[in-house]
Amino acid sequence: MGLDLALPVGELTRVLVDVPSVSGDEGTLATAVEEALRSLGGLEILRDGDAVLARTGHGLPARVLLAGHLDTVPVADNLPARLDGSRLYGCGTSDMKAGVAVMLRLAALLGTPASGSAPAPESRPGPVSGAGAGARHDVTWVFYDNEEVAAARNGLRRLAERHRDWLQADLAILMEPTSGEIEAGCQGTLRVVATVPGRRAHSARSWLGENAIHQAGELLTRLARYRPRSVTLDGCTYREGLSAVRIDGGVAGNVIPDSCRVTVNFRFAPDRDPKAALAHVAEVLDGYDLVLDDSAGGAPPGLSAPAAAAFVAATGRAPVAKYGWTDVARFAELGIPALNYGPGDPNLAHTRDEYVEVAVIEETERVLGSYLVGRGTP
């Protein structure tokens, strides 16, 4: 298939949505993105599996990296896309093919048409023609795979291991859905499994045993009484949360269980690292056997970095804390300031009725176009 980057950004989003790209099956879309970028010319291109990267090389003082994932969660009878008034419905509209469409339009804005393979400058989107004419920053685009599944498969993680030089930038903008607002940093997250012991017995003689499920009540009471911190960093307030998210126990309908497992999730502010977060959970749940199931550090807001501060000033938006974990944390690990900024609504991600407001996609394109070249796209 071919992608026409001269399409209005809302229509381009619709085209992208209609290409199914459930995690692990991004190949068709990745190839279409690669071909569209190569047709522009003036960009260095790299393909790694189903990740596609492109960058300008004009020797400008600063480099901005735009990142977005190509994959979606499984389709839920919500393809093909449909337009209803100002809303575009379909799998991946918010998370995050609207962001990918903006990235591609900006590539068309900053790239140079290859002979006979892309629209002429006067018919292409945006006011800029020529290789990076009017560009304020060099730009790197990272379209990656397998974001919606286990971290071990994450395409950005793979790229950091194989092509670290491609990720170098003064500022990374992750185009995850934020409803067109700037969400700074992200929370860290960890899961532990707490095991509550008991003693097995026949349920007809329950007094001879110790019911592990009943014993878990004290642990659950601790969690219910827990008062999480609110931490303000760079003017962004992160609220922590410690929650039971799963309980497993029981042997049979006539057996007093001798073991109960409670999975606990801790969403922590980015002033803690995973080690400190685990120590805090161990203190709260002192006396219980805890096994770490998963953890990932958060990312500080990074708003004091010159490139991040300049972007905030240019957009005129007041940053807020990012609730949840995103791949900005990977950039933070690399020492690269990173922000979340995208057109989708995070509250609609992964839902059957997922949609995106076309006006917000257009506004995101305008804001980023203005920041990168000094003028917005029409």
Rank of each mutant, 00 (worst) to 15 (best):
F143N: 05
A101C: 10
P119G: 10
G130N: 03
G130K: 02
A194E: 09
S23N: 12
T13Y: 06
V17H: 03
P121M: 08
H280V: 09
T237L: 05
G132W: 05
R55Q: 02
D170R: 13
H202L: 09
A318F: 00
G342M: 04
V312K: 04
P337Q: 09
E176I: 08
A204K: 04
Y288I: 02
N78L: 02
L43K: 01
E362M: 08
R153F: 09
A216K: 03
R261S: 11
E210C: 00
A32T: 09
R352W: 05
I256S: 11
R157A: 13
D165R: 15
V231A: 06
A313H: 09
A120I: 09
N146G: 02
A62Q: 14
E147M: 06
A76L: 15
E357R: 14
G180C: 06
W207M: 05
G209K: 08
T326G: 07
K97Q: 03
L3I: 07
L156S: 13
L334V: 02
E363F: 02
V231N: 11
C186I: 04
L79W: 05
I45Y: 02
I213A: 03
S259D: 03
R272P: 00
P306Q: 04
P306S: 08
S230L: 06
A276F: 05
G297T: 04
S203H: 08
S94P: 09
V75A: 13
T364M: 05
A32H: 11
D293N: 11
D18I: 09
L348H: 01
T237A: 13
I361K: 00
A108E: 15
P378C: 12
A36F: 07
S206L: 01
H137P: 10
A313E: 13
Y371E: 04
R55E: 06
A172W: 06
W207C: 00
V15I: 15
M103F: 03
D71G: 07
G249I: 08
L290N: 07
V128I: 11
V358A: 03
S129F: 12
